[in-house]
Design a binder for these strands. Sequence first.
DNA 1: AAAGCAGATGTAACCGGTTACATTTATCCA
DNA 2: TGGATAAATGTAACCGGTTACATCTGCTTT
Lengths: 333, 333
Amino acid sequence: MSSIREVARLAGVSVATVSRTLKTPDVVSPGTRDRVLAAVEKTGYRPNLMAVQFRARRTRNLVVLVPKIANTFYARVISGIQLAAQSRGYGVLLCNTQGDEAMEAQYARLVSTRQADGVIQLRAHDPFADDAAASASLPMVNACEVMDVAPCPTLKLDNRAAAREMIEHLIAMGHRRIAVIKGPRRSPLTRDRFDGYRDALEAAGINVDDSLLCPGDFSPQSGYAGARALVERANPPTAIFCESDEMAIGALQWLKRAGLRVPEDISIAGFDDIEFASYCDPTLTTIAQPAEEFGETAVEMLVTLIEGRRLEPMHRLLPYRLVTRESTAPPSR
Amino acid sequence: MSSIREVARLAGVSVATVSRTLKTPDVVSPGTRDRVLAAVEKTGYRPNLMAVQFRARRTRNLVVLVPKIANTFYARVISGIQLAAQSRGYGVLLCNTQGDEAMEAQYARLVSTRQADGVIQLRAHDPFADDAAASASLPMVNACEVMDVAPCPTLKLDNRAAAREMIEHLIAMGHRRIAVIKGPRRSPLTRDRFDGYRDALEAAGINVDDSLLCPGDFSPQSGYAGARALVERANPPTAIFCESDEMAIGALQWLKRAGLRVPEDISIAGFDDIEFASYCDPTLTTIAQPAEEFGETAVEMLVTLIEGRRLEPMHRLLPYRLVTRESTAPPSR
DNA sequence: AAAGCAGATGTAACCGGTTACATTTATCCA
DNA sequence: TGGATAAATGTAACCGGTTACATCTGCTTT
């Protein structure tokens, strides 16, 4: 493929003039400019951006570490990232890490090897954990699921307040026996959402009943199993708060198979507002998260960091929204 | 950050020796090797991969053009791509194009500007269409939704045979009035699936009734509207074949709201086997596609191309699988 | 007419690796 | 012990742009 030197030769000028014609056209004379542009046209010259980036010592690429790309919530976040990155002239290197720390570290290394200018981490783990030198200095933003003590700026939902509002909504409808199907034990999301659950119960003077707490892992399968476990207990709940919509949908399926009506016999609430939350039967009461906005804001923060501008504030919360649909109603007993 | 020259200075050797120690350790003497490795350790040296790639004139990055990243089917394809690329030492530059041709062209240009070694296009459009020179020579593979006259190797499902098998399944159950909610008019997927529908009817001696054909765009919304339109006709169908699961789920919702029972009053079939196909109520009869395998095979084909090996065959089909669940049953009338 | 200056263009160093080729050192045999 | 050969290491060109600095041209100014 043609290089700048061939263009220069064809136009009868030096490589510097070609470069200037393309980057700062106003400093070359019109006649020369025309000759150069004609030569560019003729050769089909495209600057080798590898060379440009190498010279400039920046790639204008961002690495995004995604725990599970097939998750529709993350897909939306990524859409937002993509959009914001593009408008700022950055490309996105997407890495599906499956939550694997070795894989995260490997991809994060793209930054320390200069293949990318910064990292957006969507999981609560420091991918530079084993690389103290890197950790301190490389541009990174941690979004969605954030570390408790993050070595970088963060961006998340106020999960605790959101869960609290959801539970308050159920309590206001008259529920007292509200179960929870939790997310993965290690996730800060789980802890925060559970804290919100407890906050709401305590504020209403209801004791937390351990028999109403059920472990899960955000998958539909765990929601299915969780609903069964909860309902088959001696004193079953009148409402189940699932810490993710996917679990809520799994729970819904078991309840219907078991012949229970939702919301008449039992209410179900989710979290995330994935697309199918409004297409399942009944439609799901849930917490909507501004997924695309997560992506856009994370990019904005990261680019600020990369370009050496001051980032203020370092830690941000995005707004949630309680979406009430058909799956919740006052208890019948 | 430290460069190879600093490491060389610290170890008291030339840069060539450092390079060799890291790339071909067997050609340096053990003593030197140890000194160099100690210096590498001490400086925290990481080769600047921009420089490496620039020198090697290849990036080991692949561009993937995805129409809609939030679509769970594509998310699975991408998982497969990611996995296969990683195992071959390639990174993935993911581009969410929203089916926008300008955006596709822009991202595809990453290849002609040497920021990536090849393209996987998941939509039936040539991103180099406006760049004849590029089109011919740049490594590209077109997968999932493929162009009719592709300028590159392709990989798809035998959509026609799959749709035919689905319709034959419905006919075998006794259905004669089978409606279709189609995908986007311009998509080859739509045409192929519809051809399969027609094949099956013709083989069974059933005439194609235009009043049973309904346009859609693969979205749940269009399935919802389509089901309504079909059922409100004078002589409604006993089964609806939706060309995507998302439309089937939309259709299901309208039918249930309208008080119709699925499959007792009307059967519904989808296409894709997305995760929620087995979590909706009733669970959905559909065609399963090997999404991850699409990704893996596309990468394998592309890398073969990039590395200049012979690719045989150029055009491949992947297997589908009819998954019968609760949403289809013999007609009651 | 000589000096000064602006504008246009050319020259070459540089980014940080890799590697062909040259050079030095060690080894071995006659 | 000399010379051939192999092994280890060094030197420097190269990838393809960008850009500081040098040079050249033509014009203005006194």
